[in-house]
Design a binder for these strands. Sequence first.
DNA 1: TCAATAGTGTCTGTTAGACATTATGGA
DNA 2: TCCATAATGTCTAACAGACACTATTGA
Lengths: 224, 224
Amino acid sequence: MSREPKGRRQSYTVDVVVLTPQGEQLAILLERRGDGRDKWVLPWDTSHGAEALEEVAQRIVKRSIGSAPTWMNQVGAFADGDKHPSESELSVAFAAIAPLGTGELPSDEFAWFPLSDVPPLHERHQRMVQAAVAAVRDRLDLQPVAFRLLPTAFTLSELQQMYELLLGRRLHKASFRRALQAASLVEPTDEWRSEGRGRPAQLYRYAPKRRRRSRRGVRFDLLG
Amino acid sequence: MSREPKGRRQSYTVDVVVLTPQGEQLAILLERRGDGRDKWVLPWDTSHGAEALEEVAQRIVKRSIGSAPTWMNQVGAFADGDKHPSESELSVAFAAIAPLGTGELPSDEFAWFPLSDVPPLHERHQRMVQAAVAAVRDRLDLQPVAFRLLPTAFTLSELQQMYELLLGRRLHKASFRRALQAASLVEPTDEWRSEGRGRPAQLYRYAPKRRRRSRRGVRFDLLG
DNA sequence: TCAATAGTGTCTGTTAGACATTATGGA
DNA sequence: TCCATAATGTCTAACAGACACTATTGA
């Protein structure tokens, strides 16, 4: 344990885990670094002056995917040793979401990697990715995260697939739609989309109405 | 908006929101500051070298209440302007829990304040308190937070009151106990406690067994 | 026609909440 | 004895999950 500040480490960084759906799973955005251009890191930046943390994160996302994220949330502060591309002692991580169809990236400095196939990262970045994915999944039933992963118009099957992707398990179709209707979260448009073979699906849009706040009872769904 | 770093603001602080039950509500721990000793702040410290954030927070709690917290979690990083007792640009907030009966404090530098009657704080500290309370309540059904607020042996009525305090609403007694039994979270001791008038209550202890992970269905209990 | 997907109706087991009842102590 | 609290049993409405069925397209 070196306890000497040594003059370096004066600032902190803001690092962003940008998530997007890609097929059956989530993908994260990485930036090319290193001499051989074969190292990958989470996009990050140091803070400038009194700029708010969210502003820094927004700027990083804009630079990375060319547009603003549809959702963003702070994950937390990470500080442990030097396992970061910068020399900074502390980093603040953000989780951001880019909707389906953000595939095209402005430069080849950036690339999407499915969560199952992430290249080796700095230790601090690894923990940030884990925490960001966990944070997005945790807030699923508290914030309408799934809708941020979809374009404004979507089919109910697409929405269900997005929930299944985020939750990591299959859902029951009829129950899913019943719960959706009870919550008054979506409204149908008058458009339909024919997707290959079967019957065309009606398109819906996100349109939350009343707040139900039902939640009967306490759930002791805990881990220990 | 002053954008000049001006040479100051090199480090960051760790600030802790220590919570304890006090009657019908939660109370937070504040430290006396200022010339007239009439100003109150959240206990905080600057980080020393490569010390982990959790270590700093633990140290702060120890100094404040004389013992380790029964639960602790990072809330997030806060940075906006100068609204902090230090000159630091960034602060990392922790939420900590002290169990019922931690009333006695080692010095009169510290005091408990019920959440309904918190003296004026620095703007950043105000936001930390709100975020910490929200974080504790959010994690109620994911982590056994309520048990950390109680001594090792407690009655089921006390446990229910603790849940009601944290959730901010009344619970149904029979349903509460049924859910508790289904989750296999507590086990009875062979002790009983007579509390004034009525029938004595059996004492229980926290003893989680199997993990149920039931949670059937999706809950769209969202805010918007 | 068949295959594939969208969308809906019905049944059943589970459970939260309401209500009532018994149990057991103190005043 | 009366009162207060603990603890439990029963009923009901709500709801998740299963299953089956209809609807509507492309091949």
